[in-house]
Design a protein around this nucleic acid. Structure first.
Lengths: 152, 152
DNA sequence: GCGCAAGAGTTGTTACGTCAACTCTTCCTG
DNA sequence: CAGGAAGAGTTGACGTAACAACTCTTGCGC
């Protein structure tokens, strides 16, 4: 971690530009979700997961695993989304335990429209700007980083 | 924003992998800063700015401009860092106004060591993994995104 | 069945980021 | 010089993320 390694000015510039581009891009995507569909990125992630779940049912632990979130974060988020009418939690089986999570019609509607708008944004900021060679270069870097850093 | 545009499975996979890689990378970099040097990424950013400032002095507005942060965020962050002994705010000139921000010896020491470790991480996760062609492709994308999305 | 460990879900705490309101100073204009 | 606009910095409120502690259930061994 602390071996002697420093970066050239060009390397620092590459890194700073990369970080800034990432920050601007995620901010813009989040802003679009909020403005056009009234949901945050976190809410969008939950909605997409529930949409993909067979039967629209899913448990807190499954969500936490799929999203790589703390389960506490999932529980807090679900509470807020339930309050806003995007989903419902039902008592399934165990007494006093709410193991069933299901989209409301309103939540299902929002996620369909948001996925559409989100895809348009991805196309606009990524694929419209990337040549096949650039796409391949970035994809290779992504895969390498994931295999180096992913838990396990 | 909402024109009809959808993505192929390959395009979705590219996007998801790339987002995951970014998340893992920033998480790992933050974790290293915290573990090896005891500072957060936000604290690191402030320290680097103060280090570069001539005379070690800088004002809140300058910091907010350079980092693209809300000035309220800067003020809160400075309060926390002052409490931790990384920097000092001094009354310079105006009565009751603290316009001077200066690193403490402890803060100056931490930032020197942290920059070193940070550079090693960047080399490890970026330049050690990237060919010159990949670097060029990614750099071009960064620059394009910045010119498209940067304020102004 | 009893006891206990493991798992599921919830809740509280703390820290951080955003936003808006507020104070105080500086500067411009008449 | 008086008045007000603009700028600098601070503060409080609110929503969110990480983490730990907690409750309740399930399942297992005896």
């Amino acid at each position: 971690m602390t071996e002697t390694a420093s970066l050239s000015p060009e390397e620092w510039m590459f890194w700073d530009e990369w970080m800034q581009a990432q920050r601007l891009l995620t901010k813009e995507v989040d802003r679009t979700l909020q403005r056009d569909f009234g949901i945050s990125k976190a809410e969008f992630s939950i909605l997409v997961m529930l949409r993909a779940a067979t039967g629209g049912q899913m448990r807190v632990t499954d969500l936490a695993g799929s999203l790589d979130w703390e389960k506490g974060r999932v529980a807090h988020q679900l509470t807020r989304m339930e309050r806003r009418g995007l989903l419902e939690r039902t008592e399934a089986g165990a007494a006093g335990r709410r193991t069933g999570i299901m989209l409301t019609p309103s939540g299902a509607d929002v996620v369909e429209r948001a996925i559409h708008g989100h895809a348009a944004n991805i196309r606009r900021f990524a694929f419209d700007r990337l040549s096949p060679e650039q796409t391949a270069a970035i994809s290779a870097w992504s895969k390498g980083l994931i295999s180096q850093l992913a838990p396990g």
